[in-house]
Design a protein around this nucleic acid. Structure first.
Lengths: 190, 190, 190, 190
DNA sequence: CATGAATGAGGGTTCATTCAT
DNA sequence: GATGAATGAACCCTCATTCAT
């Protein structure tokens, strides 16, 4: 593992556990066993480090929205696939997910929000694109695409954090995920 | 308005906008027009200030969970009342709500989380109490009380933040709130 | 006990245990159960409090040098009496003695030294007066009066602190005190 | 001279003159012409700076107790050598000696005492080792080794401070030092 | 006499960042 | 690529003291 990747890995861990603002670069480099100028050589700044994290993990995250969101007639099935892939990603990189949630909820005028915002917008846009396609076939959903995007993300994340807090992320099996989808669809078509 | 209250008001605003960790006590007292020892006279520490905020606003928030969560046969009506009161509170103290959301999402090992945690637990407990009572009459809900609590909070907050982000909190009228309730109930009884 | 005396008592204790500079007035008034303006009403300032302490206890200390230092032919007996009285005082007010030693050793340019200096000078002067009188009868001591004063104080204090450190101040009985005197006299007449 | 040493030198001076508690790190770095983070880079904390001082000067001080305390039959000569070396050290580093005396006399519960205590204990232990060896040849001293250690230190220090206070440390010639030894020995064998 | 509230100045410490080597 | 050393700015907090009541 290269120094750059070691720093990224440690940073994700510490940012997630202690918070981006609370984690000093000194702590990161000390725990990795390198020096500060080394970090600045690779990332330019603390914000640069955060950006790199979003690039490495975030792009994989976005890929799910690219690859697993396909509507081909069966809405329930489409969302099923997506939710399962989404949750699989969270199980694989739980630290990154915690960091992402923390960053998104961070205050609007903070540095960290500024960095995560475009990333988050991309996710939402992909979702909205998907729901717009869906709405072509369910015309009654046409005015709800934005809300559906928010709503699906919110529902999934509530579900995930509920299990994270109880410390049982692995219990989140595919079968249970489908219940989330059902709940979402009931809401949508109400 | 007393100095103490002025400090609390300004702190809620700045903490919400810029983040608890990002806001220095110097900034708070400067904007209020007092000095640091004055803040420490009233609150003891920055954390004490945060606690005071939670006491002042948070207790009003908890009161909603105490006063507006009554089950008397009509579940839909009961939750309607609660959601409307909840959202009314958010409209009244939007800054506090943003702060509360930010704190709750803050990292588990941070100081701010430690302070908000008992407060959040109280909210959840009140909800669970309510749903337990409900489950006496709908036995098929008995195993779902915890999840329903999380879920209702999550759904409401998603809804609220969706509107906040779009800058149209006032558009959240009672009629629309009832849609949230419907969505929730559909999900629950699925 | 008046408030004034309560403050003095507590201040002696804290100054001795934690140091004059390390003890904040806040701590003193809190432990006594009064307010800061009350302290300032009685003593004017922190230095004023220290001065009051020196007046109350210090004057009793000086009295020993006044009352117990009489030369009437028998040098050994005279010093015996003085040393015994000196050590008796220390046993009675060990906290004050610790404070006095601490203050005397404190840096020349510190506030606390400035306050204790005149007090210490008085002690030395009394001693030197005594030894000057002695020297009238032992002409070979005439050039040594200053050194004898320092030396006697130093020897006693070393002895006392030695026992204080070992935690056995009460073991310092009169009989043992006389050994100190012998050691001093041997040294002087060497 | 490196920055680290410049800071140490200035700190010894200020700590000795104004007191450890009274001297702010700001003052030290300002007078040296560097910045605070530089001090913290080298010493970690104000206490770390004090520890470094004790290491640099204190170890030289302890070396005297290691190298100059040898008993080979002639007690008077042995102590002579030691006292002369001791006083020579004090003449060389008078500021450090003043600091050391101040620290030792500082209140038991203070930070500074905690740091100097192990250092002081080492000095005493070395002395006691020496006197224990002596007592093998003068069996009547066997029960007095601890007291002799305290006593010799106390006598020397009284002597030194007496001269320091009068501002004539250089007048403390070897010849005069031997008088201290005589006085000590008279006391011991009394 | 006693109090709650306020203050200017400074405490020690840490922040993200940069430089010469 | 990597380092030790240095920095300006800011951090939270506490000091002795004072004022109106």
């Amino acid at each position: 593992m290269t120094v750059k990747n070691e720093i990224i890995a440690k940073a994700v861990e510490l940012f997630a556990k202690e918070g981006y603002e609370n984690t000093g670069v000194t702590r990161i480099v000390t725990e990795v066993g390198v020096t500060k100028p080394s970090l600045y050589h690779h990332f330019g700044s603390k914000e640069g480090l955060l950006s790199s994290i979003l690039e490495v993990y975030g792009n994989q995250f976005i890929d799910i929205f690219k690859d697993e969101l396909h509507y081909s007639g069966d809405l329930s099935y489409a969302i099923d696939c997506f939710v399962i892939a989404y949750i699989r990603f969270v199980k694989r990189y739980p630290m990154f997910f915690r960091l992402y949630k923390q960053l998104y909820q961070s205050p609007v005028e903070s540095d960290s929000y500024r960095i995560v915002k475009p990333f988050y917008k991309q996710l939402l846009m992909r979702l909205e694109l998907f729901f717009t396609e869906v709405a072509n076939h369910h015309t009654n959903l046409k005015t709800k695409t934005t809300w559906m995007s928010y709503s699906l993300l919110g529902l999934m994340d509530t579900y995930i954090i509920h299990h994270m807090t109880l410390g049982s992320l692995k219990d989140l099996e595919d079968e249970k995920c489908r219940q989330v989808v059902k709940q979402f669809l009931y809401g949508v078509f109400a």
